[in-house]
Computed example of a mutant assay.
Amino acid sequence: MQDIIDVQTDDFDQNALYNALRQDSASQGAIVTFSGLVRDFNQGHAIGGLFLEHYPAMTMHSLTNIVGQARQRWTLGKIIVIHRVGHLAQGDQIVFVGVTSAHRKDAFDGAQFIMDHLKTEAPFWKKETTECGPRWVEANPNDEKARAKWGNDD
């Protein structure tokens, strides 16, 4: 099965991505999707928008590795990971993770694993526009805790 992994500036259509997960998936009994949005408040500051940067080769390598690790742990069907970069406004979609599996537990675990690792391993740099001016977003300790629950991934 061919995974879809993309980093793009354009918005994505959740319905089209869901339909892509369903297509030719008669043996898959579960589909789990997650979509992350730009919030209006983060780490004690009101957020007016977000700018995401990345280094394309490093990012694709990281995302491909994360998806590969998920495939090693669970029996998964199709996987779609879309992450946006560039200027984003409040409420804009940032990330989509979709996973199919024959069983719901594998689909839920696979999707959460991918998202937890994406938040801590994928090389994206975020600069928020706040009422105090622009600021780079630092790593969130809660994201590291979420990732740590999966144990040693190497």
Rank of each mutant, 00 (worst) to 15 (best):
G49V: 02
F34N: 07
A89I: 03
V99W: 01
T129G: 08
A26C: 12
I66Y: 03
H61F: 06
P56I: 10
K127T: 14
D154A: 14
F12H: 02
M1V: 13
Q43K: 14
V32S: 09
E144T: 15
D143N: 14
Q14K: 06
A30Y: 04
G133L: 08
D143T: 11
D13I: 09
E131V: 10
A107E: 01
F124A: 03
I66S: 03
A107S: 06
G91Q: 10
A148E: 13
R71C: 03
F41T: 12
Q112G: 03
G36P: 02
E138H: 12
Q28S: 13
A70D: 01
N152F: 10
S25R: 07
T120D: 07
D106C: 11
M60P: 00
I31Q: 06
N140V: 12
H83A: 02
L50K: 00
T100L: 09
A122G: 09
A70K: 00
N152D: 15
M60D: 09
R39N: 04
H103G: 07
I114A: 03
W150V: 05
L17N: 02
R39Q: 10
N140H: 11
Q28H: 13
I4H: 06
T129S: 10
H117W: 11
I80S: 02
L88W: 03
K119C: 06
L88F: 03
M1E: 11
G68K: 04
D13Q: 04
D3W: 07
M1G: 14
D106P: 05
G133Y: 08
I4D: 00
D3L: 04
I114R: 00
R104D: 05
Y18H: 09
D116Q: 04
G44I: 06
T59M: 05
F96A: 01
T130F: 02
P123V: 05
